[in-house]
Design a protein around this nucleic acid. Structure first.
Length: 568
RNA sequence: UCGGGGAUCGUCUAACGGCAGGACUCCAGUUUCUGGUACUGGCUAUCUAGGUUCGAAUCCUAGUCCCCGAGCCA
């Protein structure tokens, strides 16, 4: 049965070689058609967009099989780095992204006893031994890329002695570094990972879950494949830098009778332009207070993106679009931003807010009069409903929407020009009021009372439409304007002088303390997303209160005018 | 001096010996009470050199460049 060649024509399927390969396994009935994957973070930090790619991959791969499942497993084998704080944030982030691991939440630390038993078994069968060399001696004995390693003096200890030593390691009789358990493989292997890799080390450190029950902890290389096998993982998906571990992974699991027998597959990790992704660097940003924390809206962490106003759907869509391959790549952050706008465009109510207010007085509008206007929350979707706006004698408009000496093709307000106040009325600017320093402080206009709602009865075309807020009803708010954290497409580019923190965009955050909101915006709670018409998408920050609303700019609308203006 | 992985529009990615396709970006236009959205059209790519073949991004040979690997981290 041959598939139609190529997917050309309106291909909706995201390119994804892992999916292709798993689908082939399902077709062939491998593992009885079962697909079990896992997302295995170490709880030592916050998840970022790179993890999100992996989460999406693992969960969607499992979905390929009708009865598949994806586990959430915390790889907590290094007690020094880990903490329950991170466990909770990871759970929250995965859930927020829209994935459900059901009852399949596991910890590598749950397997400590079983891992130990398996280690004892390997010792008994002559596949592991206790090495009592110092760390320096072990490193020396391992050789390097060009020289094979050499067998150490403890490599041929008797099974009895190894068993005794291992038991005493566990019992806490030895200091850290005194002994380690090593797999007995091949010190001369071309593959450095196979030169008797460490399985256990002594660490007298309290573990966030097992407390002081253990003072020996398994290494990733041993714990990870075994944990996969314990859980019945069929497809163990990880990033490319683990590719060298595959032979070792297979070595460990093949010494036991697991069914299914897991296999490891590697894909290229995500890199984004204008972004740093490594935990180490993100940590520096936090510690050096370049950002407000792990959930700073400029951070590529899931928590930061959530606070920024990203939607889970946008992130999932992005992950699907960029595909999965084995090629090192740097994805243009514009792709992420596009996926974001695409989702926000169809999910966000339209509202009006003025970021940098300029007062506009309608001189022929009676002082105490108000005009009620019904404005839809969406231009294309009636289900969003509408709200009532009040046009009053004094309104605020955006400073950027007025130009005293307009450039060519300027559609907005200028002396003598007529514009539409969106859903409001047509107004013409008559006079510009300035302060002593020559700054424009107020605009005096007249309106066409016949244009209530926004259109003139004579049908004349008015090109410019600007947003506005009634001065009488406006609600004061703080608006935080976020932009890309770095100026440089590749903040880590070594061709530059200095360090990546020198490439931080100084205007990645601008706080506007006195923005003016339409009243409907004051009642919204943290996490609610809206569009400020003509400006961008915004989200209510957790800092927001009824008395002091705070909105974060998620992303600007595409702006072909500013592009054109730059060319002029 | 070793081993592994990789190279296709500016970016990400398809094509598995048979018309180099899609998405983003960019450009031009239509619609529009958001200079938004939607819609239409357009530009742009097979690392290099040989070879096999009617036909090569794909197979072969030789090279070039990039990434990863020598933690008692994951």
């Amino acid at each position: 049965m041959s598939e139609p060649k190529g997917k050309a024509e309106g291909q909706e399927n995201a390119p994804n070689f892992i999916h292709d390969l798993v689908e082939a396994d399902i077709r062939e009935g491998k593992h009885g058609g079962q697909v079990v994957t896992r997302f295995p973070p170490e709880p030592n930090g916050y998840l970022h967009i790179g993890h999100a790619k992996s989460i999406c991959l693992n969960f969607t791969t499992a979905e390929l099989s009708g009865q598949g499942r994806c586990h959430l497993r915390f790889d907590d084998t290094n007690p020094e780095a880990e903490d329950t704080e991170y466990v909770e944030s990871i759970r929250e982030d995965v859930r927020w992204l829209g994935f459900d691991w059901g009852s399949h939440e596991y910890f590598a630390s749950d397997y400590f006893e079983r891992l130990y038993d398996c280690a004892v078994d390997l010792v008994k069968r002559g596949f592991a031994y206790v090495d009592s060399q110092s760390p320096e001696e072990i490193r020396e004995g391992r050789g390097d890329f060009y020289r094979p390693g050499v067998n150490g003096p403890f490599r041929d200890r008797s099974v009895e002695e190894n068993l005794d030593l291992l038991a005493r390691m566990r019992a806490g009789e030895f200091d850290e570094g005194a002994h380690v358990l090593r797999a007995k493989i091949d010190m001369a292997s071309k593959d450095v990972n196979l030169r008797d890799p460490l399985m256990y080390r002594i660490r007298k450190v309290t573990h966030h879950r097992t407390g002081d029950d253990w003072c020996i902890y398994p290494m990733y290389d041993y714990a990870h494949p075994m944990s996969d096998a314990f859980e019945g993982i069929t497809h163990s998906v990880c990033t490319l830098e683990f590719a060298h571990h595959n032979p070792l992974y297979q070595w460990f699991v093949s010494h036991f009778d697991f069914d299914p027998m897991p296999w490891q597959y590697e894909f290229a990790r995500l890199n984004l332009t204008y972004t740093v992704m490594s935990k180490r660097l993100l940590k520096r940003l936090v510690e050096e207070a370049r950002v407000s924390g792990w959930d700073d809206p400029r951070m590529p962490t899931v928590a930061g993106m959530r606070r920024r106003g990203y939607t889970p759907a946008a992130i999932r869509r992005f992950a699907e679009r960029i595909g999965v391959s084995r090629r090192d790549s740097v994805v243009d952050v514009g792709l992420l931003e596009h996926a974001l706008r695409e989702d926000l465009n169809v999910t966000s109510p339209r509202t009006m807010a003025v970021l940098r207010p300029l007062k506009l007085v309608i001189e022929n509008f009676p002082e105490d009069e108000e005009v009620e206007l019904v404005a839809p929350f969406s231009p294309n979707d009636e289900s969003f409903g509408s709200r009532t706006l009040h046009l009053t004698r004094e309104v605020f408009i955006e400073r950027d929407d007025f130009m005293e000496e307009p450039v060519k093709k300027w559609f907005r307000l200028a002396p003598g020009k007529e514009v539409r106040l969106r859903y409001g009325a047509l107004v013409t600017c008559n006079e510009v009021v300035k302060d002593d320093a020559g700054n424009v402080v107020e605009l005096r206009c007249t309106w066409d009372p016949e244009s209530k709602g926004g259109n003139a009865p004579d049908g004349r075309k008015v090109r410019g439409t600007i947003h506005w807020v009634s001065a009488k009803y406006a609600v004061d708010a703080e608006v935080r304007l976020y932009d890309r954290l770095f100026n440089d497409e590749n903040p880590l580019d070594e061709a530059h002088e200095g360090d990546f923190t020198d490439r931080i965009n100084p205007s990645s955050l601008e706080v506007l303390p006195h923005a003016k909101l339409e009243p409907s915006l004051a009642a919204r709670g943290p996490g609610e997303r809206v569009q400020f018409e003509r400006l961008g998408y915004f989200v209510v920050d957790p800092d927001s209160t009824r008395a002091h609303p705070v909105y974060n700019r998620t992303i600007q609308l595409k702006d072909s005018w500013s592009k054109q203006a730059k060319r002029n």
